[in-house]
Every structure is written in C-alpha cells, then in structure tokens.
Amino acid sequence: MKRPGRRRVLAATGAALAAGLAGCSGGDGGDGGDGTDGGDGGSSDIEIPAEAESRVEDYLTADPAADNYDGITAMGSGSVTVDVGARGNGGNFAYAPVAIVVESGTTVEWDWVAGNHNVLAAEGSDFDLDSGSARRDDSYEFTFDSAGVGTYYCTPHQSVGMKGAVVVVG
C-alpha cells in the first residue's frame, strides 16, 4: 500500500483542525491573515466535494508541482483576492493562496505583487480564465457563477510550477 505524501498528510491534518475549530470564531470575514480578504465569515462551512479536491490535488502536485501547495484554503463568498508573483517555486513564481474554495457568485481578483505573470486556464479547467499576455503590476478578476474547478497557470513560469486552482461550490 502506498504511503500518503507529506502534502496529503498536511492537507488532511489541516482539514481536521479546521473542522474542529469551525464554530470557535464569529468574525466578520475581514483579513484572512494571509493578505487576502477573508470573504463573508462563513468560509469554514464550505464543504469541498471529494472529486473536486482530487482534481486540484492531481493538478497541483503533478510535475512540475506547485511547491507552496498545502491544501485548499476556504475563502467564502463575495470578493476574494489571490496574489500573483508571491514567493514560491524558487522565486516570485507563485499564486497565494495557491488553491481556494469559494461559493458560486464570488468574484476572485488576482493582484500582481511582483514580476511579469498572467492567469491562463489549464487544459480541463471548467472555467475560461485568461488575463492575457504576461505583464507586470496589473490585476484580473473573474466572477464564478457556477460550480466547478478552475485550474490555471502562468504561461512563462508554468515549467517551475506556477499553478493555481479555484474550487467553486453551490
């Protein structure tokens, strides 16, 4: 029997911890603690379908792996932000958080923090994400109106693992 990898163990541990703490904070959403908007405060109640979680795991851990992937971050609904050009993959070649789950109707904004990057849907993505050619100091937003899994990458940095994912539920 194959032993689970470090990332899968960390993801499972994080999920168990999050489930145990789900009712411990009221909060108003606010800052998610990682530089992102915490959504509507109901983010801990989002249940990720197993099939969607598996698709994200397979995509982000495939060669080249996104070295900053440690599970899917619940972001809630409304408007959330993903940093583009965050530290990871040997430089400023990452999205942060790398994988998120949001509710249908949520607008995700990708904000450039460093370098020339873009957001482009990967083969098999349920959403047609396309910020255009790689550029510096920009932003891109997309409103997710239906459930599905959006997988994406940065064109010039895909070979070093600059990949991300959005799971949309509801």
Results as ranks from 00 to 15, higher is better:
Lys2Ala: 14
Lys2Phe: 04
Pro4Lys: 12
Pro4Leu: 13
Pro4Phe: 02
Gly5Phe: 03
Arg8Ile: 09
Leu10Trp: 13
Leu10Ala: 14
Ala11Gln: 13
Ala11Trp: 10
Ala11Ser: 15
Thr13Met: 12
Gly14Val: 03
Gly14Gln: 11
Ala15Ile: 00
Leu17Thr: 12
Ala18Asn: 09
Ala19His: 11
Gly20Arg: 10
Ala22Phe: 00
Ala22Leu: 03
Gly23Trp: 01
Gly23Asn: 10
Gly26Ile: 02
Gly26Asn: 05
Asp28Phe: 08
Asp28Gln: 06
Gly29Ser: 05
Gly30Leu: 07
Asp31Arg: 04
Gly33Arg: 09
Asp34Ser: 08
Asp34Gln: 08
Gly35Val: 10
Gly38Asn: 11
Gly38Tyr: 11
Gly39Tyr: 03
Asp40Lys: 04
Asp40Trp: 07
Asp40Ile: 04
Gly42Phe: 03
Ser43Val: 00
Asp45Gly: 15
Asp45Ala: 15
Asp45Arg: 15
Ile46Ala: 08
Ile46Tyr: 03
Ile46Gly: 02
Ile46Gln: 15
Ile46Val: 13
Glu47Arg: 15
Glu47Leu: 13
Ile48Cys: 08
Pro49Phe: 08
Glu53Phe: 01
Ser54Asn: 10
Arg55Tyr: 07
Val56Phe: 02
Asp58Tyr: 05
Leu60Gln: 03
Thr61Ala: 12
Ala62Arg: 14
Asp63Leu: 12
Pro64Trp: 05
Ala65His: 03
Ala65Ile: 03
Ala66Leu: 04
Asn68Ser: 09
Tyr69Val: 04
Gly71Ser: 05
Gly71Cys: 04
Ile72Thr: 09
Ile72Trp: 00
Thr73Lys: 09
Gly76Cys: 07
Ser77Leu: 03
Ser77Asp: 11
Gly78Asp: 09
Ser79Pro: 00
Ser79Tyr: 07
Thr81His: 02
Thr81Pro: 00
Val82Ala: 00
Asp83Gly: 09
Val84Met: 00
Ala86Pro: 01
Gly88Thr: 04
Gly88Cys: 06
Asn89Leu: 07
Gly90Ile: 12
Ala96Gly: 01
Pro97Cys: 05
Pro97Lys: 05
Ala99Pro: 09
Val101Glu: 04
Glu103Ser: 13
Ser104Gln: 14
Thr106Asn: 08
Thr107Gly: 10
Val108Gln: 04
Trp110Val: 01
Trp110Pro: 00
Ala114Leu: 03
Gly115Met: 05
Gly115Phe: 03
His117Glu: 00
Asn118Cys: 13
Val119Glu: 03
Ala122Phe: 08
Ala122His: 08
Glu123Asn: 14
Gly124Phe: 13
Gly124Ser: 14
Asp128Leu: 06
Leu129Met: 12
Leu129Asp: 06
Gly132Phe: 08
Ser133Gly: 15
Ser133Leu: 07
Ala134Lys: 03
Arg135Ser: 14
Asp138Val: 00
Ser139Gln: 14
Glu141Ser: 15
Ala147Ser: 15
Gly148Cys: 09
Val149Tyr: 04
Thr151Ala: 12
Thr151Phe: 11
Tyr152Asn: 06
Thr155Ala: 14
Pro156Ser: 07
Pro156Leu: 05
Val160Trp: 10
Val160Pro: 10
Met162Phe: 09
Lys163Ile: 01
Lys163Asn: 11
Val167Arg: 01
Val167His: 02
Val168Gly: 10
Val168Asp: 12
